[in-house]
Design a protein around this nucleic acid. Structure first.
Lengths: 225, 225
DNA sequence: TAGATTGTTAATCGATTAACAATC
DNA sequence: TAGATTGTTAATCGATTAACAATC
C-alpha cells in the first residue's frame, strides 16, 4: 500500500502538449547511433529551456543519469506510455469529407496510439467504399456498432450543423472521448472527454501574429532612419 | 502623439486561442434575432468564466453596454479584426497529399482571413490539376512565384523529411509566416512566424486523458462498493 | 430607482525559470 | 577527482479568478 493517499492532480496540459514534440525529435535521433540524450540537447533543438525539458520528462517517471542524460529508447518508451501511445485505442470516425478522408488515409496514426476501425457517412455514394483498408459504413449503424464493439473514441469530422447530434448519439452509445474537428462547441455530459481540434484556432494565431509583425515592421521603417 | 511610449506586450496566447471560439458561437447567434449578447451568456455556452470572457473581449477594444451586453455585429467585427480576419491573407500551400488536398478543398477558410492562391507538389501526376479552383503547380516554381506575387504565408503539408528544406526555400524567397503541419521542428530565422499544427499533439491529450479516466474509473469500481 | 451588466483593480493560482545540491 | 548533468526546492511571472465600483 505504499504511496497511497490523495491523488495529486494530473500532468499540466502545457507539458502534455510538448510530449509529442519530444517523441518526434527523439525518433529522429533513434536513426543515429546516439544512445543517450541530455535535456540540454533537446532544449536546444526545440528552442526550449533545459530546466523545462527536465521537468517535462520527469512527469513520465523516467530517471536520467547524471553526466550522461537519458537513455534514448527508454525515454521514448516512457513518453509513449504517458500518452498511452503504447496501446492501440480503437476509434470510429464519422464524416468522410475531405478532412475525414485525410485522417482515415493517414496510416501513421497507429504509431500514435490510434486505431481507426471503421468510418461512417450518410452519403450512399461513399458507403461500402474503403479508404486505406478502412470500410465506410452508413451512419445509421453507428450507435449499434459502438455498443457491439465497445468503442471508446469517436472522431467527428462532420459539418458543424450535424456535430452536436452525432456527438449525442455517440455518447448515448457509450463513447468516452470525442476528437472533434467541427467548429462548434459540443455540449455533452461533463465526464465525456472532448478534445477540439480547430484548424482556425491555429490559423488565428498565425494571422494575428503576422499582422502585428507587418504593422511593427512598417512602423520601424518610419521611425528608424 | 497620444498614447505613445513603450509598447506593452501583445495579447496573451490563451486569449487568442479562445477568440475563434467566440466568433463561431457569435456567428451562430447572428442567425437569430438577438442583437446584444452578454459575457455571461457566452461564458455559459462555452463553459468559461464570464470574467474571463469580458477580459478576452476587452483585448479587441470593444466597449460593452452595461445592462445590455455587447452589440453582436460589432463584437464579431472586433474579434475578426483582432485576428486580421477582416483581410484576406494570400498563401501558398506545398504538399498536395491527402491533408493538403483537404485544406485546399476547405472553402470556408476565406471567412477566416486565408486565401490560398496556389498549391505546389513535386508529383507530375498532380501538377496542372485543379482542386476547388486552386491550381497545382510544380514545386520548382515555388520560390520564383513567392517573390513575384509577394506571398507572405506558406502552408506546409509535405512529409516530415522534406519540411525543413521547403521551409528554408520559402523563407529565402520571402515568406514571413509558415503554417506547418509536418511533425518536425522547423529551424528558421527567428523573425519568421511559425505556427505548428500537430494533429498528434491534440491526439496525445485525448489518449492521455482517456487512459487516466479509464484507470480512475476502474479503481473506483474496486474501492466503491 | 433598482438591478443587471460592464470594466478595473487586487488576490490567487499554476507554470516557468532560477538556484543549487546530489550524483556518476 | 573534476565536471557535466540530473533533480529538487525556491522565486518569478503571467493568466485566471475574485471583489467591487461605475454605468445605463
Amino acid at each position: 500500500m505504499e504511496k497511497a493517499g490523495k491523488h495529486i492532480g494530473g500532468i499540466p496540459e502545457p507539458t502534455l502538449r510538448r510530449l509529442p514534440k519530444y517523441i518526434d525529435l527523439l525518433k529522429e535521433l533513434q536513426k543515429t547511433k546516439i544512445k543517450y540524450v541530455s535535456s540540454n540537447f533537446i532544449a536546444d533543438k526545440l528552442n526550449l529551456d533545459s530546466i523545462q525539458v527536465r521537468k517535462d520528462l520527469a512527469v513520465t517517471g523516467i530517471i536520467g543519469k547524471p553526466k550522461l542524460g537519458f537513455d534514448l529508447d527508454e525515454l521514448i518508451r516512457s513518453l509513449n506510455h504517458t500518452l498511452n501511445w503504447d496501446n492501440l485505442n480503437d476509434a470510429f470516425l464519422v464524416g468522410v469529407g475531405s478532412l475525414g478522408s485525410a485522417i482515415i488515409g493517414y496510416s501513421a496514426f497507429s504509431s500514435y496510439g490510434l486505431n481507426i476501425v471503421a468510418a461512417f457517412d450518410n452519403d450512399p455514394q461513399k458507403v461500402k467504399k474503403t479508404i486505406n483498408g478502412i470500410e465506410i459504413l452508413p451512419v445509421t449503424k453507428l450507435a449499434e456498432m459502438i455498443r457491439r464493439m465497445k468503442i471508446n473514441i469517436g472522431i467527428l469530422t462532420v459539418p458543424a450543423e450535424s456535430a452536436q447530434a452525432i456527438a449525442e448519439e455517440m455518447v448515448e452509445a457509450g463513447i468516452k472521448a470525442i476528437w472533434n474537428f467541427a467548429p462548434i462547441h459540443l455540449s455533452v455530459n461533463k465526464d465525456v472527454i472532448i478534445e477540439n481540434l480547430l484548424l482556425t484556432q491555429s490559423l488565428g494565431l498565425l494571422t494575428h501574429k503576422l499582422s502585428a509583425k507587418l504593422k511593427k515592421d512598417s512602423m520601424l521603417m518610419f521611425t528608424n532612419h
